[in-house]
């Protein structure tokens, strides 16, 4: 699929990826990503061959597996490596302003 990554798309991708890219990084990535995506397009040559093919989400067949619904004790304290917490709760920033 022919696609050109422009400034607006880089900004959108940075936002979706939650990475505050610098202006230099945006410039560098725009150029490199266009080259990489251009190379990816070789797979379009197989469009006819894959029409009726099921996607392989894993290389081997994996069946869904469920463990018994029995609660297990954590052997460690999940707050041990956490910087922002209060009364056994993790504190985070608000999600909307």
């Amino acid at each position: 699929m022919k696609i050109l990554i422009d400034d607006a798309l880089i900004d959108k991708l940075a936002k979706l990826s939650r990475i505050a890219l610098t202006e230099d990084e945006k410039k560098l990535f725009k150029e490199q990503l266009n080259a990489v995506i251009d190379a990816f397009n070789i797979i379009d040559e197989l469009d006819n061959q894959i029409k009726d093919i099921e996607p392989a989400f894993h290389p081997i067949e994996i069946a869904d597996r469920f463990r018994d619904d029995i609660p297990e004790e954590y052997s460690w304290n999940p707050l041990e490596q956490n910087l922002n917490n209060e009364n056994d709760y993790i504190k985070a920033n608000r999600t909307v302003r």
């Binding site: 990826s17 939650r18 610098t22 956490n82 922002n84 504190k91 985070a92 920033n93 999600t95």
Partner: peptide, 24 residues
């Protein structure tokens, strides 16, 4: 948020803004 690189919370930031700085 839970482990790895973290900073003291700054209430002027949203969660997305905080995460974006950490990840950058």
């Amino acid at each position: 948020l839970r482990y790895g690189l973290q900073k003291q919370l700054d209430s002027s930031l949203t969660f997305d803004e905080y995460a974006s700085i950490i990840r950058e």
